[in-house]
Design a protein around this nucleic acid. Structure first.
Lengths: 112, 112
DNA sequence: GTGTCATATTAATATGTAGCGATATGAGAA
DNA sequence: TTCTCATATCGCTACATATTAATATGACAC
């Protein structure tokens, strides 16, 4: 150490504000849950699904389904179409790319 | 309703097991945190950084830095090289693609 | 050996989230 | 209107996570 900075001084790395990544982290966080990825898999396959269809497909009670769908809708991953008492969800086209990458595994690169 | 199934019957959707997506969800979950994305931004820019360099760059105490780095290391996102008392982290090449997509914003598609 | 410094671990608190039963809302049918 | 059913919200438990001070480990220099 040579000038009193107190850290190893291989390089001067400029400060970075984590808040800058708040938006993207909330999106990834909304995707990063196995139940919600399973939902995305179903929605991706059928293009558009009724919330009530996911209930038997995932074997989870209705409030759980609704909560997860809302979480993804809130950050823009899902679109919603309401017809009478039914709600149909589809993947927001802006996210189709990354969702498909994730579902396909983007296999070689991401599977563990 | 016509056959006693008890749900809206637009289609028969096969059951899906959320556990199948456990691996990928843990990875996305490890990325989906603003502090860790900020770390990935620094590591991506400098290719390889010492843990002690991240401390001043992010303005967080050492245990916080270590915890986050470990979380990403544990799921394979980061590689680690230990030299003496220093630990150098870099992005596992298998994840460079998706990390860059995320950092670049894959902008049009993912920013909110 | 001792001292220093980078890193890891521990322990504690605070916050967030998953899951789901119970209940409320709201739309359509009768 | 009343009934039914899909959806939304509430409330609670259980668990996971972020954060950080304190402490331990481990490497190097002396």
């Amino acid at each position: 150490m040579s000038d009193g900075v107190g850290y190893c001084e291989i390089r001067k790395i400029e400060k970075i504000d984590a808040e800058e990544f708040d938006g993207i982290s909330r999106i990834l966080n909304a995707i990063g849950n196995r139940t919600r990825i399973a939902m995305l898999a179903v929605i991706s396959k059928y293009r558009e699904v009724c919330a009530c269809e996911l209930q038997p497909a995932l074997g989870m009670p209705q409030p759980t389904i609704t909560t997860h769908l809302h979480k993804m809708y809130d950050v823009g991953i899902l679109k919603r179409k309401e017809v009478g008492k039914f709600s149909y969800y589809s993947i927001n086209p802006r996210f189709e790319g990354i969702v498909n990458d994730i579902l396909r595994g983007r296999a070689e690169t991401m599977s563990v």
